Simulated scan of single mutants.
Amino acid sequence: MPTTSRKRPRSYDPARTRAAVLAQSGHVREAVRGLTPEQLARPTRLGDWTVRDLVAHIGMALTAVHRALDRPAPPERTVQVTEWPFATAGKSAAIADFTRRLAADHPDLDAYLAGVDESLRALLDTHPGGRLLQTNAGALPLDDYVVTRAVELVVHTDDLNTAVPGLGVPLDRQALATATRLLADALALKAPGGATEVRVPPYAVVQCVEGPRHTRGTPPNVVETDPLTWLRLATGRLTWADAVKDAKVSASGERADLGGLLPILG
Rank of each mutant, 00 (worst) to 15 (best):
P2F: 11
T3A: 14
T4F: 01
T4D: 11
T4G: 07
T4R: 15
R6V: 13
P9T: 02
P9A: 07
Y12K: 11
Y12F: 15
A15L: 14
R16P: 00
T17C: 09
T17E: 03
T17V: 15
R18E: 15
A19E: 14
A20W: 02
H27V: 05
R29C: 04
A31N: 03
V32H: 08
T36Q: 09
A41P: 03
R42Q: 11
P43H: 08
T44Q: 02
R45C: 12
R45G: 15
L54A: 08
A56F: 04
H57W: 05
T63P: 01
T63N: 07
V65M: 01
R67Y: 11
R71H: 10
P72I: 08
A73P: 01
P75M: 02
R77Q: 15
V79L: 10
Q80E: 15
E83K: 00
E83W: 00
P85L: 06
G90Q: 08
K91I: 03
S92A: 15
I95Q: 07
D97I: 07
D97K: 13
F98M: 12
T99I: 04
T99V: 05
T99H: 03
R100T: 12
R100H: 14
L102K: 06
D105Y: 00
H106M: 10
L109Q: 10
A111S: 14
Y112L: 05
A114K: 06
G115H: 01
V116W: 04
E118A: 15
E118D: 15
L120W: 00
L120H: 03
R121I: 05
R121M: 05
L124T: 07
D125S: 07
T126P: 01
T126A: 11
H127M: 00
P128A: 14
G129V: 13
G130C: 01
L132P: 04
L132V: 08
L133R: 04
L133E: 07
Q134R: 15
Q134D: 14
N136R: 11
N136D: 06
A139N: 10
P141E: 07
D143L: 00
D143V: 03
D144Q: 13
Y145G: 00
Y145K: 03
V146W: 04
R149M: 09
E152F: 06
V155N: 09
T157N: 04
T157E: 03
D158A: 13
L160R: 07
L160P: 05
N161G: 07
T162Q: 14
V164S: 11
P165I: 10
L171Y: 10
L171F: 11
L171R: 13
D172H: 05
R173H: 12
Q174A: 12
L176Y: 00
A177Q: 14
A177R: 15
T178L: 12
A179I: 12
T180G: 08
T180Q: 09
T180R: 08
D185E: 10
A188Q: 01
P192H: 08
A195H: 04
E197V: 14
R199K: 11
V200R: 10
P201M: 08
Y203K: 01
P212R: 14
R213F: 00
H214D: 05
R216W: 12
G217Y: 02
P219I: 10
P220R: 12
T229K: 13
L233M: 09
A234Q: 02
A234G: 00
G236M: 13
G236A: 13
A243H: 06
K245Y: 13
D246W: 12
A247E: 15
V249S: 05
V249I: 09
A251K: 06
E254Q: 09
E254K: 08
G260N: 06
